[in-house]
Amino acid sequence: MLRYIAPLIFLAVLIGFFIKGLDPDRDLNKLPSPFIDKPAPALDLPNLKNLTERVTSADYEGKLALVNVWATWCVGCRQEHGYLLELAKEEVLPIYGLNWRDQRNEALSWLTQLGDPYVASGYDADGRVGIDWGVYGAPETFLIAEDGRVLYKHLGPLDSFIWERDFMPHIRAERGVEQ
């Protein structure tokens, strides 16, 4: 009996691996973030628009907030920019920017030309804070809970579909608990 069942089990496991490996929706660039459900890293950067001011995690403490990593050299960031503006207009939640490894004058003109969805953007010229946040490719978007935990992290441009599917369930759960 075993001599027939054992190869079948082996085959089933192998097929399982192939199905996972060949899944067209599988994106090898998407890595699980080690920050999920853990306190978000600290943010403390000069404000992009006014370098004498600072943007810190204290600014969004006690709020459900979005931290969006962006740069002017990043194509995906331009792609999602319109959607971020929409989110900001609807006042779903405050959006903070982490301007990552960018030229300041270019970043400033980007915000003037395309619009500014951010409450404030921290200016991370040399990418040090980016490393603290485990950033490896812009755009990246972190959903931060009121108590400062990271609820969700998305890699790549945001759109309404991803927002509804991946972000809204967390937001509803968080807001539902408090009401």
Partner: peptide, 8 residues
Amino acid sequence: LVERYGDF
């Protein structure tokens, strides 16, 4: 590194 980027 693992704290920030995971085991990967």
